[in-house]
Design a binder for these strands. Sequence first.
DNA 1: CAAAGAACCTGGCGGC
DNA 2: TGCCGCCAGGTTCTTT
Length: 271
Amino acid sequence: MPELPELEILKNELRTHVVGQRVLELGFPEGKEGDCPVPQWKAAMEGATIVDVERHGKMLVLQLDDGFSLIIHLMMVGQLLLSSLYHGEPSDVRLVLRFVDDQLLVGQVHLKFLRLVPTAGVGELPELKKLGIDPLDGGFTAATLGEMLARRRVKIKSFLLDQRFVAGIGNSYADEILFEARILPTRIASTLSKEEVRTLHANMVRTLERGLELEGSSELAFVHLDGSKGAFQNHFRVKGRKGEPCSVCGTPIQKTSVGGRGTYFCPACQS
DNA sequence: CAAAGAACCTGGCGGC
DNA sequence: TGCCGCCAGGTTCTTT
């Protein structure tokens, strides 16, 4: 779903196309405002200029020059589209930012996870404060991963999905990472050997970077600002491949459930 | 506090 | 054609 690589792509595209834009109007479709305090949000955003875009885990933070920040989480099916790049008809619009040059940033976003807060308080938001280390951050080393895994009695797949430890990995990348690292999703975190920790770390970084190189995974709804799809889903080696021969050894890929999430793995390659 | 599981949410799909 | 239940996986809450 939209995971770290997809959000990183959107962050970069927003930095290129939206940073520097001044918001003329903030709009919600009639009757779809949800619980958003529309008048206050309009007052805070209209007339303000977007000066930076950051990513924290799977969350995007659009920083305005008047001291407010808009925080967006795409959940499973969210999309952001920019009218100057995208020429179709967005399907389920929930949020529209109109800029002074008449460009529209249109969002199909989960309003329950939309926030507008003072920029100074962004770091104190519970949703952001609880996030763990970013796997593409330089501080994320095999040693730090090893420290986090030690004494953790949770299944390694659940560990990867838990945003409090490492932020940004979701259900699709988790399966691909564990396949590449040749580690069973059900292994208990603390039982990984030093060598396995090193391999896991390397493949977390490598797999996420490969997702970036392939323009993200559009397995579900993810698209770029221009509506185009990524290609990583075409290179999945286990995700969604139940019964198909493993690309390494030919053994049929199996599907099981780990932590209530669909989990694909090769019973021969992963141990 | 850690871990597991259920619940909530949205969209898509199959069955009737 | 619609309705319904189910599944998907993002989060959060509840229980142990």
